[in-house]
Amino acid sequence: MSRELNKKIRRAEFFSGLALSIATGLSLVIGLVLTRRLWLTVKMAAIFFIALMFALGKFRERSAGAVMGSAFSVIVVSYAYDFYSDLSLLFDCKGEELEIFMRSAVTGMIRSAFVFAAAIMCALIYMGMISITRRRTLMIFLYAFIAACLLPFMLELSNIVTEITLLLSLCFIPENSSTETKLGKTGRLSILFFPIAAAVSALMMLSSVLIMAVVPLPGSGEYPAAFLVLEKVLFGAGPIIMIIMLLLFPFLLFDKQFNYDTQKKLQKAEDALK
C-alpha cells in the first residue's frame, strides 16, 4: 500500500467522520430535546458511533466489526419500519387522497428500500460475512442508491446524515490500492472538502430562512423582488453543492483494492508475457 495514498485517504476518513459526528450530534439534540422521538435518537446514536469510528480510524479493526454491524442493524430496522409505514398509508388512502399521497409514498418507499439494502450490505461487510470483489458492481449500486435518495428531495437532516454515512461506509471499507492512481483523486478531494461544503450549504439555507423572516410577507405590497430572487438562489445553492459532493464520493473507489479487479490485472499481465 502506498504510504502517501494511505495518509490522504486516512485524512478523508477523519474529516468525514468529524463532520458526520457534528451533524449527528445536532440531530441527537433535535430528536431528544425538541421532538422527544426516542427511536430517532437511537438511530442517530448508532450513526454517531459509526462516524466516530471513521474519525478514529478504528472501523476496519476486527474487534469493532460486531459493534459496527450492530449499529448498521439499527438503521436496517429503522428503514424497514419506514417502508412498512409508507406502504400501510398507501393502502389506507382512497380516491383523491391516494393521488396526492402516491408520489411521496412511492418515492419514499424506493428510498427506504435502497437505504435498507445499503444498511444490510454494510452490516454484513463490516461483520466479515460478505465482501464486494468488483468495483463496477459497487459503483453501479452506489449511483442507484444516490438517485433513490435524491428522488424525494426532502431536506431532512436525519435522512441526509444516514444516507451519507452509508455511502461513506461502502466507499471506505475496501482496502487501499498498492499504487497511486489519478482517477480516485476527484472523489478523495470531494470527501476532504465535505465539512466545508456542508458548512457552506447550511449557511446558505440558513441565510435564506433569515431573509424570509426579515423582509415583509408576500402580498403586503412591500416584498422586494430582489430578496425573493436571493432567497431562492441561497436555498437552492446549498442542496446543489451537497448533491455535487455526493456524486463525486464514489470516485474514491478507484483508489481501492478489489479482488476481482486485481486478479483480472494479473491475468492480463500473464497473458501479455506469453
Rank of each mutant, 00 (worst) to 15 (best):
A12T: 11
I241L: 15
V74N: 00
I244A: 09
Y143W: 09
T24D: 07
L155V: 10
R134V: 01
E61F: 05
C149P: 02
R62L: 14
Y143R: 04
F172L: 12
I125E: 10
F193T: 15
P239C: 07
G57F: 04
G31R: 04
R136C: 07
M212I: 10
A64Y: 14
V76I: 14
M154C: 09
T162R: 02
P250H: 01
L34Y: 13
I110G: 09
L183S: 12
L32M: 04
I22H: 00
A198H: 11
P174D: 08
F235M: 02
L34A: 07
D86M: 12
F141T: 08
E270V: 13
S190Y: 01
P216S: 08
V229F: 10
A199T: 11
K185F: 11
F141H: 06
T181F: 02
T24W: 00
T165H: 02
S88D: 05
F59H: 13
L155K: 12
I196Q: 08
E97G: 06
M129K: 15
R10L: 13
K274C: 06
L273W: 09
S63Y: 04
L28W: 05
F251R: 02
I244V: 15
L166I: 08
S85R: 14
A51P: 01
P224F: 10
A118L: 00
I140Y: 14
M242S: 08
F101M: 11
S73V: 11
C122D: 00
W39C: 00
Y143E: 05
V214P: 00
I120G: 02
V200R: 03
G238R: 03
D255S: 15
Y143G: 04
F116N: 00
C122I: 01
D86R: 13
G69I: 12
L247E: 05
I191H: 00
I160C: 05
L166G: 07
F249T: 13
G221S: 09
T35Y: 11
S85E: 15
Y84S: 14
K265M: 09
E61C: 01
F54N: 07
M53H: 09
D271C: 02
V115P: 04
G57D: 02
I22D: 01
K8W: 11
L203I: 03
P224G: 09
T107C: 06
D261I: 01
D255K: 02
L273V: 12
L234H: 03
W39V: 14
F101T: 04
T165G: 02
R11L: 11
V33D: 04
I110R: 07
L266Q: 15
S78N: 11
Q263S: 04
I125N: 10
D255L: 10
I110V: 15
L206A: 14
L228K: 12
I241H: 03
Q257N: 14
G184D: 13
L266N: 15
M129A: 12
T41W: 06
G236R: 12
F59P: 06
E4I: 01
A272G: 11
F101S: 08
L155G: 00
T165E: 00
K274W: 06
A197C: 11
A123I: 02
I132M: 12
